[in-house]
Amino acid sequence: MNGKVSEVIEQPGAPVRTRASEFSYSPDDFNNVRQTLYRITGIRLADTKDAMVYSRLVRRIRALRKKSFSEYLGYLKRTPGEQQHFINALTTNLTSFFREPHHFSMLAQHLSVTPDVNTIWCAASSSGEEPYSIAMTVAEYFGHFNAPVKIIASDIDSNMLEKARLGVYSDQITRHLSAERCKHFLHRGKNQHAGSVRIVPELRKMVEFRQINLTVPRWPLPRQIDVIFCRNVMIYFDKQTQLRLLEKMVSLMPAQGLYFAGHSENFSMAPHLVRSVGNTTYQPVKGKHNG
């Protein structure tokens, strides 16, 4: 936080307490934030996230010159345009290039045995590292950028989508990419842009970014999705929402499709929807072509 700093003291399961608090923040405020976020996005915040909520929203409250969390929440209720700022502040965006690398190896293998893969959806693209890793894998498999595969990347956070479209990152990412990938897929910044890299335009053109809230009734997607990356997203939803979203995603997939989940996600509770075919990798039980 900048300006007048509050020292946040967080104890698991207890409402947040602050020393010299800059803004009034009660347990009711925290609960109202949680309920509002759940209503808009389906995301459930744990009881222990009260300090996180304070630190994330305090910057927005300052910018709007509000005097308390309750005043801000009233403004949020009256101002539909504030919802996106609220969502952007509270959603978590942790990602990296080729995170959980076994998934990208499985994707390349899948492309080799399933020649009719047309569409890949990255359902939580964050700042772009994951969909660009997908695009690199696809480009490497086909040997060129004009691959016959459409890559759609979506996120609920408009700020992250804008960053993803730009494709500009710290040059620290080169530590996690091979020299060959750096050569083919990155441009190094010069002069005032030194210390940064940018995804080459040919790779950026392979990815179409769209803003999608997974909990809305209709998604702006093609009728069939062959591969879905939905990793470390379901953990933010309750079980009922997880099953509803998984069922909806699987309904878009062919029988031979692949669904990549996050390392902490498990769908053993949904054997009627998916079956495991590898480490956090699933196929539909009832795809579009087998009933």
Rank of each mutant, 00 (worst) to 15 (best):
K205V: 06
I235L: 08
F260E: 01
I173D: 01
H176I: 03
K163T: 15
S276I: 11
C182I: 13
S178K: 08
K163E: 09
G262S: 15
A153C: 04
P217F: 11
V216M: 12
R231P: 02
Y282P: 05
F185E: 06
V197L: 09
P201I: 08
L166T: 08
T280F: 09
P217Y: 13
S264Y: 10
F260C: 09
T281I: 10
H184Q: 15
I235C: 00
S251D: 05
F185S: 04
N191W: 15
R204F: 05
E247N: 06
T174M: 09
Q240M: 06
V207D: 04
K163N: 06
E208A: 13
K248D: 02
K248R: 15
E162Q: 13
F260V: 12
N279T: 15
M253E: 04
H187S: 14
N159G: 11
H263W: 08
S251H: 03
S268H: 15
V233K: 00
R218V: 14
E202M: 09
M249T: 01
P222S: 09
K190D: 07
H184G: 09
R218T: 14
M269P: 02
A255Q: 15
H176R: 14
A270M: 03
H193V: 05
Q242A: 00
K205D: 13
D157E: 03
A270G: 02
S268R: 15
M206A: 08
D226F: 05
S154T: 05
T241H: 04
M234G: 01
H193L: 14
P201F: 10
E208Q: 14
S264A: 15
H184Y: 14
N232P: 03
S251T: 01
R165M: 07
A270N: 00
H184V: 12
D226T: 07
P220R: 07
Y236G: 02
K190G: 06
R181V: 08
P217H: 12
V207N: 03
D155Y: 02
S154H: 00
G167M: 04
C230H: 00
E180V: 07
I156E: 00
L243T: 11
V200E: 08
L186H: 11
S251A: 13
Q172I: 06
Q192I: 14
G278T: 09
L243A: 10
V200D: 07
G195Q: 12
L252H: 12
N191Q: 14
K239C: 00
S264L: 11
L203Q: 13
N232E: 06
M269W: 07
